[in-house]
Nucleic acid binder design. Sequence first.
DNA 1: TAGTTTTTTGAAAACGTTTATATTTTTCGA
DNA 2: TCGAAAAATATAAACGTTTTCAAAAAACTA
Lengths: 334, 334
Amino acid sequence: MAKVTIKDVAREAGVSISTVSKALNDVNVVKPDTKKRILEVAQRLEYSPNLIGQRLKSGSTQTIGFFTSSVTGPYFSLLMDALAHFSEKSGYGLNVYISSDRHQIMNTIRGNLFDGVLLFDLVISDQDLEILNSEKMPVVFLDRKYTSEYATSVIFDSFQAGYDVGNYLLNLGHRKIAYIAGFEGVYDSEQRLAGLRKAMAERSLAIPASYLLQGLFEEEAAYNAVLSFIRSARLQGTEIPTAFVAGNDISAIGAMKALKHEGYNVPEDVSVTGFDDIDIAEYFNPALTTIRNPIAAQARQSIQLLLQLVKGERNVAAKVLPGELIIRKSARNI
Amino acid sequence: MAKVTIKDVAREAGVSISTVSKALNDVNVVKPDTKKRILEVAQRLEYSPNLIGQRLKSGSTQTIGFFTSSVTGPYFSLLMDALAHFSEKSGYGLNVYISSDRHQIMNTIRGNLFDGVLLFDLVISDQDLEILNSEKMPVVFLDRKYTSEYATSVIFDSFQAGYDVGNYLLNLGHRKIAYIAGFEGVYDSEQRLAGLRKAMAERSLAIPASYLLQGLFEEEAAYNAVLSFIRSARLQGTEIPTAFVAGNDISAIGAMKALKHEGYNVPEDVSVTGFDDIDIAEYFNPALTTIRNPIAAQARQSIQLLLQLVKGERNVAAKVLPGELIIRKSARNI
DNA sequence: TAGTTTTTTGAAAACGTTTATATTTTTCGA
DNA sequence: TCGAAAAATATAAACGTTTTCAAAAAACTA
């Protein structure tokens, strides 16, 4: 009992396959009687069209590809859920493709499986990007600013986020602020730092080099960085900052644990902030003051821009979404 | 500049398309010289095969479909990440399809897009399942026990988990234990309760009806349930349980907040446990004692069983994976 | 060198659809 | 009732591949 095709339906209904196709696709040209008969036969035989055949012929797939290298982090469920929701609402299927194999990824994107693609956290060369553009493949980046004829992006304003956190702490009276960075060269980490620096510069303040710690965006690395920083500061009798701005929430947690371990109370003795507003931020003690990015909005906008591209618009402008300062308990006035 | 096809390569290389196909697919029959020439041309023209064409012809897609209705919950990133990892390792692509539209889902599964599918948290009728089976579509369920000729499942042993938590608390000396249930009829919630009951029954103990609370697997609902339970118990002068087994972690957190609000310290005055081991469990204060399910193992097994089915094995036995008790701070001896 | 075998290449069919065009059937007017 | 117009249906091509089988080219053999 192989899978029933349009041919089987045609034979069973005593009609040609083109008529079946028209009946099924509601092309208003087939006689009501025959159409009814065909539909009945199709139902009885439990016919379900071969999507591959359809797609090959039509050239359109009504599906969006979401490509990413990994799915870790809480950011993800939220993003994917929203993406799925908005694409479904627009009548498009969403396919998530997870891989770090550049060649595989390009092959899949270029395999005519998708009407357009969303790209996140991928290693793709400029040359690859050009190929995509030359093949008129609609692309939206979720992790970097980029625009071309067939590509655009929807990202968060990490600079502004850093600036906002900076001003918040400065308004609370902090003057000595340390920054716990992510991996060297990570865009978000650097933008956040740049924003923070700008806020400080506006008040003629600066972050000394010794206040720049390496937290690698990880709890343990941040813990160790803060621990050794404090200890060596004590040893040298130098002053400890009144506030730590961590590059993300998880390193903020590492920082708080280190501070607690060294006998400092957060926020009484020292303030700590993060970025991202992960689940834990709210439940940790003290609850973490941080910046929340509008993930659902990013998903909605991405789908919207991508579909504009799919429908023929060109040079669609990129969007930069502002984050929101979530004030909790981990920072207070000095 | 339309996308280059195998025809373009053939023309440019002065050869037929069948030869190009053979050269590209490394069928060892084309003369080294021509092969080299073809490969060069393909590279120069940046040829990338149309996957739809390939798939239509070959009937195989080398991809696995993962179908689910929603992506919420921390369980997800972990599962997806592991799934992606293991499918890639097996040489299969993973496509995640998120939808609640039963008709859409069936259409997509039956559309010959996948060599096999993973199903989670979907509303699919028995009739649909029969159709899939009659079409020889390999299926693995991740949320319910099911086996048929072409289907099997990989699930967690919620009964055993409840039993283990029960014994743990009983060994700590607890005798009065309450259970905070999920939605009425939710399989996991009921299994966990059944396991707990068995552990108690083995010591001739039972859970009185008044100790069964409705937490809906949500923080707030659990909070409210526990709050009103405590208050009415106080009012009536009845005894309060020494331990609360919450149906999942998030309701355990709701319970702990309610207890704290009413002046009870966890775990000094009363013990609380959860199920799932979500991120927050470790960071909450007190850190939650709970059961962790081996998600990566589930992913690995699912892919493995699915591929057995894909490769022609029949009636593959279902797997039931045991959870692991993670002892932290929220429960202690009495 | 001619015949034979082996290697290499090409033509054509096939996968399951949709759609343009051709053909048949029906309807309608005179 | 016949012919023309309109409606319905069928035939065939096409989408981009792979694969079977036939044909051509190359390599041997005697």
